[in-house]
């Protein structure tokens, strides 16, 4: 499998008051296409910071990120927005749906921005909502959906746009065990079927059962990187 994501010598510092925090140190990581990889580690270990840097939401203090052949440090902020739009799908810890849009419209939103035509995006949105089990609730707004249902809409939105890489920041953190298991199953199934690369941070031990690869971060350093199963 070819390399989709290549991180080289990533360092990240930020200041908190008068203290300089070294959030990421010497991160070197290759992620192959189609991998279902988990970033694990205690709170404050740098998981979210690393995901934000990979997603172009934050910039490293030094080092380079090459995603799908593009070096993110070489492109403007405007082009980075477009890059995220077409290449990266996000699933956040808090559900992050647009409250004035229905489930279907939320899933369509990224495809609207991509400029896909109405028919194609509606078909795709309905297809993914069906996969995540929400076909009957597609007209509901987020306020009329449970936390688990909202997170499934977010998964459908991330996948429907056809990204190369899906970044998920603790997607099961706010869910009960039943919903968390269901969501993980859906993500795993979609990753397999769509050959989409998943990289997600988690504390959830159930992830260990499904992830191909487990990358352990501690104090901003990759402590362990093990292939779980292929």
């Amino acid at each position: 499998m070819s390399i989709l994501l290549k991180l080289k010598d990533i360092e990240k510092y930020y200041t908190q008051g008068e203290i300089q925090v070294h959030a990421l140190r010497d991160i070197n990581l290759d992620v192959a296409e189609g991998e279902f990889a988990a970033l694990v580690g205690p709170s404050g270990s740098g998981k979210t910071t690393l995901l934000n840097i990979i997603g172009g939401l934050d910039v490293p203090s030094s080092g380079s990120i090459v995603l799908n052949g593009i070096n993110l440090s070489d492109i403007s902020s405007h082009d980075l927005s477009k890059f995220r739009l077409f290449q990266i799908g996000f699933i956040f810890q808090a559900y992050n749906l647009v409250p004035v849009l229905s489930a279907l419209e939320n899933v369509e939103l990224v495809m609207v921005l991509q400029g896909r035509d109405k028919k194609e995006r509606t078909e795709r949105a309905k297809h993914y909502l069906d996969i995540v089990g929400l076909a009957s609730m597609m007209d509901r707004r987020p306020s009329a959906l449970s936390g688990g249902q909202q997170q499934r809409v977010a998964v459908a939105r991330a996948l429907a746009a056809g990204p190369k890489l899906v970044l998920a920041d603790e997607p099961t953190a706010n869910l009960d065990s039943e919903n968390a298991s269901a969501l993980l199953d859906i993500m795993f199934k979609l990753a397999k079927e769509e050959q989409t690369t998943f990289l997600f941070s988690t504390h959830d031990p159930r992830v260990m059962d499904v992830a191909h690869r487990i990358i352990t971060l501690s104090d901003g350093i990759i402590k362990n990187d093990e292939i779980h199963f292929q």
Partner: peptide, 14 residues
Amino acid sequence: TREFGLLRALGMSK
């Protein structure tokens, strides 16, 4: 604010 952050993260331009 959070919603605008989300829209920007998803790829909506400034």
